[in-house]
């Protein structure tokens, strides 16, 4: 076995280990076990090995399908070894590896577009959704409109947005933004609608004005849904970004994948795809982290591990 097998295997293993270890550590925070026994517990837990088994089987199937199984269609694909060799090569045959500057330029372009679209969608979508939930009248105006426009698939917007906006860059961002915006708005609205009527009544009893109800009931009460919405919106943003980049852009991972296809650089396609997987996971994790920070009350409530105060 050469380094190209051992290294990625090691990376994946330690990645999974890290995730499980963090879970253990959260548990340990309450039960107070030592670091060493946390590691031991992680390594002996059945779930940990099941996850590893899942990865190994998937990659194994990929390998088998490309090299051994009698499916002609699969034989055109690169095997996992070929992809890894290309990815880690100092002198990649098809031009993209972790040592080439171009690889990072594509990542940066995509990340930049996704982030800008996501932030715009959040800044506009959350207040829009809150307003829809807070004001009956605004809801009546806007909900039918939103429901009409929302089902239009992002790709259908591409031609129009290229015509409307100056240049390709804003067009791709606009298409990405649009999808994320609707997800964020509707989840925020759902969040407001999910708030128990009793909280509004309690606030009224205690003398709250409608502005105070917005700040002290509507916003905190819908925060859990808003953050679920943001995670979905981030996913949707990446989804439509890659589609947009395939059609219209000059750089970015979607462009890289599409170019890999048209120029018959098959390992590059897979490098692009796996990179998207990692970045997608990372961006979700960031949102989850921020959400937890903002909703300490919920962490305590849902954890089920916290101390409960009894009589």
């Amino acid at each position: 076995m050469n380094i190209y097998f051992v290294l990625p295997l090691f990376v994946i293993l330690s990645f999974i280990f890290f995730i499980f270890y963090r879970q253990q550590k959260r548990l340990a925070h309450y039960s107070g076990i030592s670091t060493l026994s946390q590691i031991k517990k992680t390594l002996t837990s059945q779930r940990f090995w099941l996850v590893i088994l899942g990865f190994v089987l998937t990659i194994g199937f990929w390998y088998a399908a490309v090299y051994w199984l009698p499916f002609d269609a699969f034989h055109r694909l690169p095997g996992p070894d070929e992809v890894v060799i290309e990815w880690l090569s100092r002198d990649p045959y098809y031009g993209i590896s972790i040592y080439t500057k171009e690889y990072y330029v594509h990542i940066l372009y995509s990340t930049y577009r996704a982030t800008v679209s996501f932030l715009l969608a959040t800044i506009l979508g959350v207040p829009f959704g809150l307003l829809m939930g807070w004001s009956r009248r605004f809801y009546e105006y806007s909900f039918p409109l939103v429901e009409m426009i929302r089902p239009i698939p992002p790709l259908a917007w591409v031609p129009l947005s290229i015509l409307m906006l100056p240049g390709v860059e804003p067009a791709v961002i606009f298409v990405t933004f649009l999808v994320a915006f609707f997800v964020t708005t509707l989840n925020t609205l759902l969040g407001v609608q999910s708030i128990d009527q009793a909280y509004f009544r309690a606030a009224l009893c205690l003398g709250a004005s409608s502005k105070e109800i917005l700040y002290d009931v509507v916003i905190p009460g819908s925060l859990p849904y808003i953050f679920t919405g943001l995670q979905i919106s981030m996913g949707a943003a990446w989804f439509s970004l890659v589609a947009g980049e395939m059609i219209a852009a000059q750089y970015g991972l979607g462009y890289l994948i599409w170019q890999g296809y048209s120029l018959v650089k098959y390992p590059t396609i897979i490098i692009g795809m796996v990179t998207l997987g990692f970045i997608g996971y990372g961006s979700s994790a960031v949102i989850r982290y921020v959400g937890k920070r903002l909703m300490a009350w919920r962490e305590q409530e849902l954890g089920g591990l916290g101390v409960t105060y009894e009589e």
Binding site: A198, Y199, R201, C205, L206, P220, M295, W297, R298
Partner: peptide, 13 residues
């Protein structure tokens, strides 16, 4: 002031 059947303390405060 009302005290509600299922309780309406603000869970976020």
């Amino acid at each position: 002031v009302v005290v509600f059947q299922h309780g309406a303390l603000f869970p976020w405060k």
